[in-house]
Write a protein that binds this DNA or RNA. Structure first.
Ligand SMILES: [Zn+2]
Ligand SMILES: [Zn+2]
Ligand SMILES: [Zn+2]
Ligand SMILES: [Zn+2]
Lengths: 622, 622
DNA sequence: TATGGTCAAGGCTACG
DNA sequence: CGTAGCCTTGACCATA
């Protein structure tokens, strides 16, 4: 029962029809819901669907189906891998630029494996003179002083390893690239010895070819993923945004982390996380826009039962793709699809990927999988470290609003004079500042930082906005209906009342204010906010058991504090109801933003929003 | 001993001195006869010499040295390549283009394909499947439409692939361009795993970097090839002529070919010659103007022995570069060198290339290599298809003289009133009409059409005139000493007698008439002429074994017919003696034409000869 | 338009 | 034998 080989993903169980069909001669991949019905994959508006029959399992992982639109699937996939590729290296690398940092050929020998720089190909546009001279052109693959290429800071979408560019339409490492090619080359049939939900990460990627290929395909890898010249300018910008974000996340990872991961070699450019290895996790791709296939919750629902009871849907719904949360069991809240122009479930937009580049051509639905590093669990477990959480919160988040420009400009009717675009720019700018603090906070939460970078990104894309709301709520004054920062009071309601229309932005702002007020009414303590923020941060749609363990641990701590302070056991549940509410607002924010973006396309001088903001809230909905 | 890289062409055998030296920093190429003696290559009148030590080989291909002048080497190189551009694969690929095949993204991913054959030296691979799998490449697309010169119809001079313009002084494809650039960019040393005579064509070009670079250099590629110099008007016209000729050849290639490769998609932009693919072939460059190095014949001389015996030299010799034919073993017949103005072996003229554009700057000696398509051999072989040959002959050649203007204008002393230029124009015009028929004939002979376009051109340049002679002979009346066309009798002798001088043109015409008469005396049947024409068509100086096979096959057919009709076994041999005689006349025709051209340079209103004629008989002697 | 550069595809190959 | 790092190749692009 070892590994069989075949590019066709044969079902582990012969009774189960294979969800994927790969034409051996062309390498073209067909995905079907039924074994007889082939949906030809094309660049056109054809939905890319994979239905995976759920196999009940007594193991720690099981399947959960929820529904996603091919367009803007609401739930972010969470794939927890382990690769804290972090950053120690980047910062410290600087200090090691040998003698002449300017033209040093700093043969950065990535530890362990020798990395030979091809002189012919990569040498050229190294800045000969001043490094301050900013290259006019930013090529994705052009080597920088690090010896790295831009795109390589984005890890492999399949396994999280160091990527080497876009291959078959997806940012992957050399290994996954070669594996996919090989799989397409010969007529073999892979089989999964387990439940077709094996973790695919750097360490385990060779454990199961079936699941690896499955993930490749689901991420949109395709032999004829049209390279079409180079990527378009827009695509490139998107990748660059993602690069920036990864850089940001990698920036100063090393010194924190509770010393758990401190022993990084100091100078290396690439430092695999000290601990690496994932756990399996059901890996589902859902028929687009079909919400009826939900089969169950990933694991013992009872274990999280306490905190998911009594979930009440938020007051409003905006008519959008259904949204489910396995923990909260939130009722589907609908927002309009992010890109209303095309509408329709069977019309995946170009950016149907959760990453900036990759799935665009194929219309594949982004995969979701994840898990905590096995070894981490084995050795330490992911223990919610309450004191650490609180101190991290206090260090990075508690005063995050203080430097904002809101305080100064708020007082008078300053906001009224804004055009819509100006208002968006202002909003995005301030939001980004908060988000930067959020990211710093997140990086120091071990339940987050232990994740694979891709999953970190996914979580940030999913939950950044929510965390901003949490933060804002802490400065919200219920009495004055305003946010008070740096002593300045921002009369949100008042400002809002001066807006001229009942447009979506108005609704968004209004709902946000309402949410802030409701949350502010809880009068949470700093510790409680810290713990709650952590929950918001790591919240996702499908947890692995270990993730639940962490989530639950934080919940327990929060519960204890809340009960101790309020003697009300329902507070936690009521707090947890904010999670779907946040998500609803977050999605509506995305909706408004996308609408604004589309307007901007016609604008002669469009507003440039912050890179981080652009990437986090890129049109490719979570 | 694995892969060595360096742009310097290192000798395959350390004991053999490298014939080429490339200055790594400048990319300048030096060629020497001895390892210590560097002849600096320049644009001036320096001989470009490469002495290749012949290595005896037990393989099907071996080396043969003959002597050529750097100027006008007589023997046309034959390089047969493999290039099944058409191929079933294209069709099947098309069917998989999802929705809209027309604007399909059917990107031709033809990349380097490598394969190892010799473990010690790096050698690249050939396609894993069939060469027919090698993707298309649009030739035709640029052919028509606008009248401006589309240089791209001329295939790459190095490998025969689709060219993309003039690069480093030579018409090359993107691959050879990039390869040459790379080779000049870095300091590497290539090595040939074999005898430095590897075939360089589209399929095999990546198998030996040494030979590829060698060919590049020999064709005159140079980093400082006068680039933007905007070629002279004459060069330009030459290129245009070549373009026109290639167009003519490409014109209606696809529909014939015995339906072997008939399954072309109908709408595609590219319709290559139906069959194309090469085989390796010894690749020699000879010391210029040295005739003593002849080492042997390419392959079993015995196999063609029968037909090459008893070759008697033609009555006259004109004192010219030696001329050898491996099959016929013809005694060197000498004509004056085509361009007598410079004379001398060490003085290559500007047009030393066999192509219209490219080698001008460097004075390199054109290479010669060739072979039949391997896969074609493997799957079908190149079987002489006698019925097809005959029908093709009847369709395209048998009545080729009927539309000529000779019939009308011949009767009276019309020709007498011609000036020399008018006579040439008339002659060239009528000749061209015949040649057009000859080309149509050739395109439908599978032993010809399977060749690479470059080789087709070379063969046409070499043998067109000969074929015209064959055709004319069919209309020659021995009794009346005249050519009878359309009922009109053209009293050649009579016309000739009115010419005023014993100049070269007179000698040429006289010899032609003699040749026509001699051939007409054979009273060949249509079938015999068809077969004989085929032999004349594919005749060349160095055959590959497969080519010999084809040649021999046709010979056998012809032999049977001749013996059956005449019961004389010597007829074939006597017929074969015409081959070198044709060549002699052909070269003398070239000589006269060039002399006429040079006269025309002084003429105020020079005669414009037909494009096809100009190109086929361009000053760059065969 | 020729040049130089980019970078994904895929060949090569050490390694398990 | 599969894997994956390294390398070459060549279609495509930006530039002068
Ligand atoms: Zn990977
Ligand atoms: Zn598996
Ligand atoms: Zn070429
Ligand atoms: Zn070679």
């Amino acid at each position: 029962m070892a590994t069989l080989q075949s590019p066709t993903l044969a079902p582990a169980n012969p009774h189960n029809p294979p969800p994927l069909f790969i034409n051996g001669s062309t390498g073209q991949v067909f995905v079907s819901v039924s074994p007889t019905q082939h949906l030809q994959q094309s660049n056109g508006p054809t939905a890319f669907q994979i239905s995976t029959t759920t196999v009940s399992s007594n193991s720690s992982t099981s399947s959960s189906n929820s529904s996603h639109s091919g367009l803007g699937a609401a739930a972010a996939a969470m794939r927890v891998e382990n690769k804290v590729r972090a950053s120690p290296q980047v910062t410290s690398y600087i200090t090691y630029i040998p003698t002449n940092p300017v033209q040093s050929h700093a043969k950065d020998v990535k530890l362990g494996e020798f990395k030979d720089e091809n002189p012919t190909v990569k040498e050229f546009n190294r800045p000969v003179l001043s490094p301050s001279q900013i290259p006019k052109k930013s090529y994705i693959k052009t080597v920088n002083e690090n010896g790295d290429t831009q795109i390589e800071v984005i890890p492999c979408k399949v396994c999280g390893d160091k990527s080497s560019g876009v291959h078959y339409g997806v940012i992957t490492c050399e290994g996954c690239k070669g594996f996919f090619r090989r799989s397409q080359a010969s007529n073999m049939t892979y089989q999964c010895p387990r439940q077709k939900n094996c973790t695919v990460d750097r360490v385990n990627r060779n454990r199961c070819q079936y699941c690896r290929l499955k993930k490749c395909v689901e991420l949109g890898m395709s032999r004829d993923a049209v390279k079409f010249g180079r990527m378009s300018k827009k695509q490139r910008e998107k990748v660059e945004d993602e690069v920036r974000m990864h850089r940001q996340i990698q920036m100063a990872d090393l010194q924190h982390m509770g010393g758990l991961y401190s022993q990084q070699q100091s100078y290396q450019d690439y430092s695999p996380p000290s601990v690496q290895c994932p756990i399996t996790m059901p890996f589902e791709v859902y028929p687009s826009s079909v919400s009826s296939t939900s089969t169950g919750l990933p694991f013992s629902q009872t274990s999280v039962h306490v905190i998911t009871q009594g979930n009440t849907p938020p007051p409003q719904s905006y008519a959008a793709p259904p949204l489910q949360h396995p923990l909260a069991g939130a009722a589907p809240l609908n927002y309009p699809p992010p890109q209303s122009s095309l509408g329709g479930a069977a019309a995946p937009t170009v950016g149907a990927s959760h990453n900036g580049y990759g799935i665009a051509q194929t219309g594949a639905v982004p995969s979701s999988s994840g898990g905590f590093p096995e070894t981490l669990i084995a050795t330490h477990g992911i223990h919610p470290d309450e004191p650490n959480i609180v101190s991290v919160y206090e260090a990075h988040l508690s005063r995050c609003l203080q430097g904002l420009d809101l305080g100064q400009s708020a007082a008078s009717g300053f906001f009224q004079s804004f055009t819509r675009a100006q208002a968006w720019a202002k909003f995005a700018g301030e939001l980004t500042k908060i988000i930067q603090a959020v990211i710093e906070f997140a990086k120091n939460i071990n339940g987050f930082s232990c994740l694979d970078q891709n999953d970190q990104i996914l979580l940030l894309k999913r939950n950044s906005f929510d965390l901003v709301l949490v933060m804002l709520s802490q400065f919200y004054s219920v009495e004055s209906d305003s946010v008070n920062i740096d002593g300045a009071m921002i009369p949100l309601r008042q400002i809002l009342s001066q807006w001229n229309a009942e447009n979506n932005e108005f609704r968004l702002a209004n709902d946000i204010i309402g949410c802030l007020r409701d949350l502010a009414n809880f009068n949470l303590t700093t510790t409680e906010v810290a713990l709650f923020s952590t929950l918001v941060l790591v919240n996702k749609d499908d947890f692995t058991p270990i993730q639940v363990q962490f989530f639950h641990g934080v919940q327990q701590s929060l519960m204890q504090h809340l009960v101790h302070r309020t003697s009300d056991e329902s507070v936690l549940n009521r707090l947890m109801e904010f999670l779907p509410r946040f998500q609803e607002l977050s999605h509506f924010h995305m909706h408004c933003l996308n609408a604004f973006r589309h307007e901007q396309l016609q604008s002669p001088n469009p507003v440039r929003l912050p890179d981080l903001y652009e990437e986090l809230f890129s049109e490719t909905v979570l």
